[in-house]
């Protein structure tokens, strides 16, 4: 399996996708730092970190992963190399898992790079770097959670078997739906159960990560308290996303297996 994963990375040689995905992690820390630079005072590193995670992961990482998946999953189709792999033989199931593993690595690298970039920006702004270990672990977990969040979208992309316009439309639609619901009471103020706030991964992740932010003062503290009953514990969040990932991976393998050369 590790050979398969290594080879998946080698297929990226001379393709700037991996580098661009990592560089994208620096976009929102830089923008957020710039914003705080112009309105100094009253902001701490927690605010900056959450300001990076929200748009950086939910709005950028999700589509980055989905677009990356089109490159990963259609490489064999576009290069006509699947027949070479099948006659080694490499099982389609393992091939799908190797590609998901590559996405996991990129997602974690992106998330951790975003955390490091936010720390550098905070330092430049003179903020105290607090709870760094916790934020690092959150970033690691967030990387894996974002992968789980992207997988249902990847299933659709693979199912539609297109690597052009339809993939982009699916990705945009999925990202926007997730993002919009994580801003609404419908998505956020719902306990874990069969509801939109649990089924859509971004509202679920937001309900998990929110408990690690500081309540703040004034309106911010009131909002934090109103959210407290809906916080999702780490095991529950990981459990739900693991089930989602498992179903998505199984569907991808099934779609791949049913496709004849």
């Amino acid at each position: 399996m590790h050979n398969l994963i290594l080879c998946e990375f080698r297929k990226f040689k001379r393709r700037p996708m991996f580098l661009l995905a990592t560089l994208a992690a620096f976009v929102f820390p830089a923008l957020t730092a710039l914003m705080y630079w112009k309105t100094p005072g009253g902001q701490d590193y927690d605010n900056l970190f959450s300001g990076v995670v929200d748009p950086g992961d939910y709005l950028l990482l999700l589509p980055v992963l989905a677009v990356l998946s089109t490159t990963l999953f259609f490489t064999e189709q576009d290069s006509d190399t699947l027949k070479n792999l099948m006659t080694i033989p490499v099982s389609k199931g393992k091939l799908v898992l190797a590609k998901i593993s590559v996405m996991a690595v990129i997602s974690v690298v992106y998330s951790v790079a975003g955390f490091l970039a936010s720390a550098v920006c905070a330092k430049l702004l003179g903020m105290a770097l607090i709870n760094m270990e916790q934020k690092f672990i959150i970033s690691l977990l967030l990387g894996l959670m974002m992968l789980a969040a992207a997988l249902p979208c990847v299933v659709l992309v693979v199912w539609f078997n297109k690597n052009n316009l339809i993939s982009i439309v699916i990705t945009l639609f999925y990202t926007i739906i997730n993002y919009v619901f994580h801003l609404t009471d419908l998505g956020m103020k719902s306990a874990v159960g069969f509801n939109i706030g649990t089924i859509l991964p971004i509202p679920l992740i937001q309900k998990w990560i929110f408990q690690f932010y500081r309540p703040g003062t004034g309106a911010s503290a009131v909002f934090y308290e109103s959210m407290r009953p809906y916080f999702v514990s780490t095991p529950v969040c990981i459990g739900i996303l693991a089930v989602l990932s498992g179903i998505s991976a199984a569907l991808m393998i099934r779609i791949y297996n049913r496709r004849e050369l």
Binding site: R10, K11, K13, R15, S79, D80, T81, K83, N84, I88
Partner: peptide, 21 residues
């Protein structure tokens, strides 16, 4: 059918991938 290889890699790099696998 037609030869299938990764277009962004050299011939040697392509063969090395399949040799490893």
């Amino acid at each position: 059918e037609s030869p299938g290889f990764y277009p962004n890699l050299t011939g040697t790099e392509n063969l090395k991938i399949f040799a490893r696998l």
